[in-house]
Design a protein around this nucleic acid. Structure first.
Lengths: 346, 346
DNA sequence: ATTAGCACTCTATTTGCAAGAGTGCTAATA
DNA sequence: TATTAGCACTCTTGCAAATAGAGTGCTAAT
C-alpha cells in the first residue's frame, strides 16, 4: 500500500506539471491528489521519490519536477489508458469529409488535425515504397519541338516531365523509343537501371540519342521520387506558445531542426527499430539528436492498402500530454487508411 | 549646402541604425559621418530632422531612430545605388549550376539564395498563368480497374490523377471518352468548363458516367492548379536572429503570417498596383496588413519565357539593407529566366 | 505512521543609488 | 552667422541590498 500511494503521488505530480509547467510543491499535491493527506506526508514521499530518481529540484526551495525516469515510468505504468472521445472522433471525421481530394491532401490535413488536437508539432511521413519498379514509359504530344514523357511505376506513381525533341525525330520515333525503353527495363528497380548500357537500344540508328538520355533520366528520377518519403509538418508556429519555448534560443533550435527534412527522417527512423506496430514514445535524452533533447516524440506507424507504411508523430516538450497524444495518434493510424480509401484513389 | 549636409547626416544615421539596430547619438555621427563636424552641430541638425519628422527618440536621453518617413526618403533619394558585386554574381551562378533539375527547384533554390544573401525572409512566387486553357485529355492504362488520366494545358502544364474504371467500361471506351471530352472543350478556360452540360456527350450510352464526372473534375482541377501561384519561402528560421524578433511575441506573429499562403499573396498583390516593372518597396505601416506592420517588403517581378510573370521578394524588419536587397532582387529578376531556360524545360 | 510547527534556504521582486549616454541650451568663438 | 565648447538635466542600465514568498527538512507531538 505504501508503494501504491507513492505512485499515485507521482502521477499527480506529473499530471499537474504537464498542465502547468511549474514545479509542484507539497501543498498543491496534498490538495489536488484527493488522498486526504497532509503536505508533510507528501513531503516525505516526495523526498523518497527524489532519492529514487523520479523527481528533481530546480533549487532547494522550489517545488519538484518529474525526471526523465519519471516520465518513462509514467507512460509505461502510470498514465490513464489512452482514449479518444466520441466527440473528437466525430469532429475528425467531419473535418476530412469535405476537405480531402488527393492523397497528398490526406497527409497535409492529417498533420493539421494532429497539431490542432495536440497543440504540438505534428509530423506525417508519407509512405515509402521501398522497392518500386518501372512499369512503362509513354510520350504525349505537346508541340512541334517538345513532348511529355510520362513514367508509370508498378505502385501506381505517375510522373511527367517535358522534354525537347531534337530535329529529325518525329513523334512516331518517340513512340518507338518509348516502346524500346519499356521493353528493355520493365520491372526493373533504379539500381538495375543505373547499370544498363543504352547503346544499341534501337535496331536502327536514330538522331534521338539525347531523347533517350533524357527519358531514362526521367524514369530514374520517378523511381527515386517514388521511394523517397516526404514529411508533412503541422503546428510549427503554435508550438512557440508552449512556455518551454519562450526562450528564443530554444525556439530557434527547434525550428531549425524542423527545417531539415533529412534530420527529421533520421530522428523518426531511430525509434523504429522497436516494434513496427503500436506506439513508440521517446522521451527527452532517450533521443540522441541534439537540438531536441528536451523534447519527446510519440510516433505510430500506419498502413495504406494494408501494405505500405508511413508514420504519424508528435514532437513537443517532454512535458506533453502523453495519454491524449497517444490516443489521437492511435486513432489516426487506424483511421488514415480508411480516409485514403474514401477518396477513391491510392 | 545646409540642406545637403542634413541629408548626409540623415543617411549616416540610417546606415548606422541599419547596421547596429541601436539608437544613434550625435557623437557617433560626428565621428562616422566624415564631415569634420562637432557633436553639438550634429545635435542641432538632428533636432531639425526630428522636427521635420525624420527622426524619433525612444526617450529623452537615448539616441535617435529613423522614422518611416526617413526610410521612405532614404530609399527614394538617399541610398547609394544598388549594385551587386562580381563575386556575388559568380557565387550565385555557381550555386545554380549543379543544383537545379526542375522548374520547381529553381524557385526553391532561388528562395534559399535570396534568404542567404539578405539574411531576411525571402519569398518567391511561382508564375501565375492568368488564362490557361485546356488542350487535351488522355488515359493511360494502369491495371484492370484503374487508369491514369493525364491532362495537358496549353501553357504546358501537365497533371495526372488515378481514376477507377467502373465495371463494363474497357480501355477503348476510355479512349473514346477522352476524345469526346477533348473535342468538346479544347481551348476552354475553367469558367467556361464549369458551365457545360455534360449530358449527351457520347453518341451512344455508356455505363461510364462516373468516369466522365471524374475526368472532368481532373481537368478542372488541373486548370485551377495551373493558375494558382505557389509561394516558396526561405530564411524563415534565420530571421529570428534579427534583434527585432528577440521578443517571442513578435516572432510568433511573423511566423504565423508566413504560414498563411493566401495572406502572403494578398500582401504581395497589394504592392503590385504600381508599376509592373522595377522594384517596389513597402515600408512599415505603408503596408496595411496587421502582424507585419513593423516590417518592410521589397519585391520585384520577373518574367519567364518573356511572358508569364512571378515575383521575388524579401520581407524583414524596417531596419533592412534596402540597397543590398534591391540589388540582389534586381539581379535575380533578370537572372531567373535564364536559369530556368538552362534546365531545358519550361 | 502521520502531522503540526518552525527554522532554514533559495528565488524573485523591489528599492535605492551611481554610472553612463545623450540631449538642449547658452555663451564663447571664428 | 554658423559653429562649437561647456554644463546642467534627463533617462536608462546595472548593481547591490532589502524584502516577501514559496517550499523544504527536521523534530516533536499525536
Amino acid at each position: 500500500m505504501a508503494e501504491e500511494r507513492k505512485w499515485q503521488i507521482l502521477r499527480a505530480i506529473i499530471d499537474d506539471y504537464i498542465a502547468t509547467a511549474e514545479p509542484i510543491g507539497s501543498r498543491t499535491i496534498a490538495r489536488k491528489s484527493g488522498l486526504g493527506i497532509s503536505p508533510a506526508t507528501v513531503r516525505n514521499e516526495m523526498s523518497d521519490l527524489e532519492e529514487m530518481g523520479f523527481l528533481e529540484q530546480p533549487h532547494t526551495s522550489a517545488g519538484r519536477v518529474p525526471s526523465l525516469k519519471a516520465y518513462r515510468y509514467y507512460v509505461d505504468c502510470l498514465m490513464s489508458p489512452p482514449v479518444i472521445s466520441e466527440q473528437d472522433i466525430a469532429f475528425i471525421d467531419n473535418w476530412y469529409r469535405n476537405k480531402v481530394r488527393s492523397l497528398e491532401e490526406v497527409f497535409q490535413e492529417t498533420a493539421k488535425i494532429i497539431a490542432r488536437f495536440t497543440r504540438n508539432v505534428s509530423l506525417v511521413v508519407s509512405p515509402q515504397f521501398s522497392q518500386c519498379r518501372f512499369r512503362y514509359l509513354q510520350f504525349l504530344p505537346l508541340d512541334d519541338d517538345r513532348a511529355i514523357a510520362v513514367v508509370v511505376t508498378d505502385n501506381g506513381l505517375v510522373e511527367n516531365r517535358i522534354i525537347n525533341i531534337p530535329g529529325g525525330v518525329d513523334f512516331a520515333d518517340l513512340q518507338r523509343i518509348a516502346q524500346a525503353i519499356t521493353n528493355r527495363i520493365a520491372g526493373q528497380t533504379v539500381e538495375a537501371i543505373n547499370d544498363i548500357d543504352w547503346r544499341g537500344l534501337m535496331d536502327c540508328t536514330l538522331p534521338g540519342g539525347e531523347v533517350i538520355d533524357r527519358a531514362v533520366q526521367v524514369v530514374r528520377q520517378t523511381l527515386l521520387a517514388s521511394r523517397r518519403q516526404k514529411i508533412h509538418l503541422g503546428g510549427t508556429t503554435q508550438i512557440l506558445d508552449q512556455p518551454e519555448f519562450r526562450d528564443s534560443n530554444r525556439a530557434r533550435n527547434l525550428l531549425s531542426v524542423l527545417e531539415e527534412e533529412r534530420v527529421l527522417c533520421d530522428i523518426l527512423d531511430k525509434g523504429n527499430e522497436d516494434q513496427g506496430d503500436g506506439l513508440i514514445i521517446t522521451i527527452g535524452r532517450e533521443n540522441k539528436f541534439s537540438g531536441i533533447q528536451d523534447c519527446s516524440i510519440v510516433q505510430a506507424t500506419y498502413r495504406l492498402n494494408g501494405q505500405t507504411v508511413g508514420k504519424v508523430a508528435v514532437l513537443g516538450p517532454t512535458r506533453m500530454e502523453y495519454g491524449r497524444i497517444s490516443a489521437i495518434l492511435g486513432f489516426m493510424r487506424r483511421h488514415i487508411d480508411e480516409v485514403a480509401r474514401r477518396i477513391g484513389q491510392n
